[in-house]
Nucleic acid binder design. Structure first.
Lengths: 171, 171
DNA sequence: GGGTCTCTGTTACAAGATAACTTTTCGATT
DNA sequence: AATCGAAAAGTTATCTTGTAACAGAGACCC
């Protein structure tokens, strides 16, 4: 329970489970997205940026319809494709991830372009932590090779209790 | 590409990707289910057994509505809950697995009561191989411990090309 | 042989996702 | 600056997946 310095920025460790300056975390993520889009010639349009902001409000996963509801609260009456297209863009370019187990989406917290990370999902507070997949990926690759399988993408998700919720439920 | 003796029965290795005596594979799985239910005091009712048979027809994953359609073809007009309840039973007791990435279900091919196996999903022929998860599970446990996360269940799925379809697409 | 509990049948609906087409916006080109 | 083409947003309709809730039937236990 003694993790100390995880609040210095977004990008490493299980930031989602650690207390941190979230306002700063959000700002950093948005700026990073803007910068990466500018550099890559991608268009971070208002809808896309707004959806990213919505995802960034917490480290919990949001369903496409949750996102849509949030957009709706703000005036117009967006239809599902609006949300899905924005989410698809964010996922395609690594600004967000889809959590298969929840049919939901989270903002990316690993500024690097790690592909197919490992997710740890708290069943209590719904926060989702994103971890590098290197060791697991190695194991999978070894298994795949053994049976002659050619891996494209992987989904690795663990559901359980985060440190904070463990402490609470133990009280 | 030199796997040789995987056809001697269901239960080990990537049987789904290896040529084998599938009629026998199916029979063995059904008998095993009957035996385990009898032993555990579970009721393998007609609907449940029929759904298991449907899943066992191939090593591909079937959606709940595919299963339902198959049931419907056979006379009555079952409603969704019929299929879902049978599938839930099969999954709960380890006779089938849910593939999160596909929102679909496959019959279990590991006679053992391995929990949370690793799945390799062929994007071409849709076959799903089930592998023991020991190494991956160890890695995940180590990562979880590091960040103070308590793992309940895990989802590990890899999508790609099975040996057979690789050979075909290479031709 | 009555009571309980599980399973099945049925209705209705909620939630998640996409197809197809139109209109708008943006950026490039002349 | 006017125009053209591509990409994104808006819109309608529909499809797929999954559940809540309740009524009836069957199995199992004393």
């Amino acid at each position: 329970m003694a993790r100390s310095d995880t609040s210095k920025g977004c990008g490493e460790g299980a930031i989602a489970f650690a207390p941190h300056d979230h306002a700063r975390c959000r700002r950093a993520a948005i700026e990073d997205a803007r910068a990466r889009c500018a550099a890559a010639g991608l268009r971070l349009t208002p809808v896309r940026e707004r959806v990213l902001e919505i995802l960034l409000e917490s480290h919990a996963a949001l369903g496409a319809y949750d996102v849509l509801r949030r957009l709706t609260d703000e005036g117009a009456v967006p239809q599902p494709p609006i949300a899905y297209r924005a989410l698809d863009f964010l996922v395609a370019h690594g600004f967000a991830h889809r959590i298969e187990k929840l049919n939901a989406y989270v903002a990316c917290t690993a500024s690097a372009e790690t592909h197919d990370p490992v997710f740890m999902i708290c069943r209590d507070c719904k926060a989702v932590a994103e971890l590098p997949s290197a060791p697991v990926a190695r194991d999978l690759e070894r298994e795949a090779e053994r049976i002659g399988f050619d891996i494209g993408r992987t989904v690795v998700e663990a559901e359980g209790l985060c440190p904070g919720c463990r402490a609470e439920s133990a009280s």
